[in-house]
């Protein structure tokens, strides 16, 4: 076990873990931040998506030893009042069904919109590779366009 200092949603945390322990399980089982989900364990489904120094990161395959000194952002840090433009768009478009993949979807969408404030359908298709078993994809696409408008108005 090694000690690691992590900065998550602007707050410092000290954790003890094996250096290879993926960030997802540090978040979930060490720190109780359960918004990021476990879906596949191999970085394919995206339910565990967080942002690291702004970049979309599949935390289930990202070792904690590579996280020190990085700015880690999870769904918990997005907003207190559930009013980030992407969350507002998600609510207005009534996107989630079972909800399990949605934290990861939202984090991926936030990253996309920061890099590309007016994404086309093609841009969304290319960026949003997260899996959803309930089939919310058509609404995810609509919500990203809506979030882009909300952010432009702000």
């Amino acid at each position: 076990m090694n000690k690691f200092k992590l900065t998550i949603n602007g707050q410092d945390h000290a954790v003890e873990a094996d250096p290879q322990m993926p960030l997802l399980w540090v978040l979930r089982d060490r720190l109780g931040l359960t918004g990021s989900k476990f879906g596949c364990g191999i970085g394919v489904c995206g339910a565990c998506t967080v942002r690291m120094d702004g970049a979309v990161t599949r935390s289930c395959v990202f070792p904690v030893s590579a996280c020190e000194g990085r700015d880690i952002r999870t769904i918990e840090g997005l907003s207190e009042a559930i009013d980030h433009p992407v969350q507002r768009a998600w609510i207005e478009e009534q996107v989630p069904q079972c909800g399990y993949c949605q934290s990861g979807m939202i984090m991926a969408a936030v990253a996309l919109l920061e890099q590309n404030p007016t994404p086309s359908d093609g841009d969304i298709d290319a960026a949003m590779t997260n899996l959803c078993r309930c089939g919310t994809y058509p609404r995810v696409r609509k919500a990203i366009h809506r979030a882009a408008r909300l952010m432009a108005e702000a």
Binding site: R28, T34, G35, K37, E76, Q87, W90, I91, Q102, S103
Partner: peptide
């Protein structure tokens, strides 16, 4: 009516068994 579970899902606050 806006679905009541959606803000929970959109904020990572809905608790699934694993949570």
């Amino acid at each position: 009516a806006p679905r009541l579970e959606i803000p929970l899902h959109a904020s990572g606050r809905s608790q699934f068994t694993v949570d």
